[in-house]
Design a protein around this nucleic acid. Structure first.
Length: 321
DNA sequence: AATCAGACCAACCGCGCCCCC
DNA sequence: TGGGGGCGCGGTTGGTCTGAT
């Protein structure tokens, strides 16, 4: 069985597009539009191409305002933030980067950006020599992305690990799903190894985390899990020092017993009581992290160990384990 | 100069969702 | 309401480029 082919494979050309084909397609769409039917379009346009191929060519290369070339640091951070929040939903991420296509972003992620992040994986994971040893270093604003860092460098590639901006950190923390990103897990695990006094606890929603900082200058935008755009400036913008315990959940962030609203959190044994009706944040110890890393060979959205319940993300994200 | 390995990227493939009949 | 067709998406592939040896 199986699905019927979308076109007559025997009579369609495959492979790279010629300038003539590009011109035909562009001319046709300029004149008549897509007509809402990509399957029929190539025949009308005089192209021996599959409709899907035409659509892809148009969307990725021929349509106006497509931006090619180097991704900026800002774009890097947007991609990372959104990836941490929503996983590999490239079309949504592309929607937040005008001129960029999902395919472009996907390729960029797979070939470069992911490796930048992988540069932060501990030596035990990636056999890389040097890593930041303080959480604060991970939370520093991105000011050195163009300068050599002390992070590890792959022996076979020339990438520079990006620095995690506050916006990335905050948005990453704001979503449970990020925990399966091996890059970030690597940071966390390494940090735990480097400084056992630190405790990193994450959880909650992207839509309710608050920020008490007045000097935070994070202006990046991100979207909630419902696709609603929200501003990072409302997020966790304060620098966090070493030896502090960090918790972020739907009620805000928490550092050494002080919440983002300035109140002290009650602690109950090893646990922490979050406000009434609050969503208990998830806690990740080193072992859990190791387990996550080992069990999530792929990214969150494709992991069988994690399911992101989009129907339950209005107030809090839910992770099934 | 030749060869090889890794990086990069355009394009293809298959699946799930949605809409329409 | 169910089935079929089209669209859109994410994963993967394969060709080309580039740098190292």
């Amino acid at each position: 069985m199986g699905r019927a082919p979308c076109c007559d494979k025997a009579n369609v050309k495959k492979g790279p597009w010629s300038p003539e084909e590009d011109a035909k397609l562009k001319d046709y769409i300029d004149k008549y539009g897509t007509g809402g039917n990509w399957i029929a379009l190539p025949q009308k346009a005089g192209l021996r191409r599959c409709g899907k191929s035409c659509r892809l060519r148009w969307l990725n290369y021929l349509r106006p305002n497509i931006k090619h070339g180097e991704f900026t640091d800002q774009e890097d951070r947007v991609i990372c933030s959104l990836f941490a929040s929503i996983g590999s939903r490239w079309s949504i991420i592309a929607g937040h980067l005008p001129g960029r296509t999902d395919n472009d972003i996907k390729n960029y992620w797979n070939t470069k950006l992911k490796k930048k992040l992988m540069g932060m994986i501990p030596p035990s994971q990636k056999k890389l020599p040097h890593y930041p040893t303080s959480i604060s270093s991970l939370l520093q604003p991105s000011s050195n992305s163009s300068s050599p860092s002390s992070y590890g460098r792959s022996s076979t590639s020339s990438f520079e690990p990006i620095s995690f901006s506050q916006s990335l950190m905050s948005s990453s923390c704001s979503s449970n799903i990020l925990q399966t990103q091996e890059s970030f897990m690597g940071q966390m695990q390494h940090h735990r190894q480097a400084n056992k006094d630190n405790l990193l606890i994450f959880g909650g929603t992207t839509t309710e985390a608050s920020c008490s900082s007045s000097d935070g200058s994070c202006n990046n935008h991100m979207i909630s899990q419902q696709g609603r755009e929200i501003d990072h400036s409302d997020y966790f913008c304060n620098r966090v020092e070493e030896n502090q315990k960090i918790m972020i959940s739907s009620q805000g962030y928490y550092v050494n017993g002080v919440t983002s609203t300035g109140t002290n959190q009650k602690q109950n044994g090893s646990g922490i009581l979050w406000g009434e009706g609050g969503v208990a944040p998830l806690e990740y110890g080193l072992e859990e992290i190791k387990q996550l890393i080992s069990s999530s060979g792929t990214i969150a959205s494709s992991s069988s160990n994690f399911m992101f319940d989009e129907n339950k993300t209005e107030e809090s994200s839910v992770m099934y384990y």
